[in-house]
Design a protein around this nucleic acid. Sequence first.
DNA 1: CAGGATCCTCAAAGATACTG
DNA 2: CAGTATCTTTGAGGATCCTG
Lengths: 137, 137
Amino acid sequence: MALSSKDCERISSIFSGKCSQKNICPVKDIMARYGDKWSMYTVLLLGQHHKMRFNELKAGITGISQRMLTVTLRSLEEDGIVARTLYPEIPPRVEYALTELGEGLLRQLLELASWANDHHADIMNARKKYEKKQVEN
Amino acid sequence: MALSSKDCERISSIFSGKCSQKNICPVKDIMARYGDKWSMYTVLLLGQHHKMRFNELKAGITGISQRMLTVTLRSLEEDGIVARTLYPEIPPRVEYALTELGEGLLRQLLELASWANDHHADIMNARKKYEKKQVEN
DNA sequence: CAGGATCCTCAAAGATACTG
DNA sequence: CAGTATCTTTGAGGATCCTG
C-alpha cells in the first residue's frame, strides 16, 4: 500500500516548515531525545505506577546506574515530561510522576509500540533473510 | 487527562510480554534503531521521493558523511525498511526505496511528528521555565 | 558511482567515592 | 535518601584514501 497524498503533504510540511530551517526535524528531535538507552523505559514505568521515588525507579530499571537515572530524569524534567516533587524531610523524599505532556507522549509511544509489536516478526524475518544473503556472498 | 485503562493495559503487556523477558522493549528497540542521527531523515526523504540514488541521498541529507550514509542504509536494509536495487552497469547505479514495511513505519513516525509539532511549543516553554528555575538557585 | 577499509577523535556512559 | 563530583572507558561517528 502506497503512501497517501496526506502522508506526502505531511512529509513536505516537515521539510518545508520552520523546523527544517533550523535544520531540526521534530521527529528526529523527539527520537533523539527520548530514544536513548533509558528514557523510554522510565516513561513507561512512570506511566504504570503514576508516582515513584528515585530508588523505586532505580530498582525498576534493570542495569541503570545512579548517574544515568539522574541524567535521564533531569532531561525529562527539563522538557516538562516528568514532574519532580521534593519533600524537604530528613531523610529527603522525592517523587517523580508524568505530567500531562508526558502522558500525551506516552500515548504516542504506545501507538508506536503497537506497530512495533505487530511488525516485530517482519523485521526479525528481514534480518534473518539479510544475514543469509550475506553468508551466501 | 489521565491515562485510559486501555493505555495501562498496553503498558503492562509491554512489561509482561516475551519482549521484557529478553529485556527488550519493542518501543525502545525501535527508538534506538531509528532514533539515531540520520535514519529518520533518510526514511522521510525516501518517503518523499520514492526512489533515490546514493549520491542523491547524500546531497539531500546535509552533513552526512559517505560512511554514515552507507551504515544507515545498511541498517535500514537489514530490517527490511529499505530496499536496495543494484543495476550492474558501468558505472554502477543503485536505487533505494522504502519497502511496504518501511512505509508503515513512516506512517507511524508521521503520527509522532504531528504530536511533536503540536507540542513543540510546550516542550520549549518547559525548557525555558526549567532554565529560569536553575538560574534562580 | 557507490562504496570498502582505516585511523582517529570526542562525547556519552560506566565506575567509584563523597555529601546535604 | 537522593543525589553531586570526578575519573575512566568505550564506541559512534568523522576524515581520508582506495577500488570494482
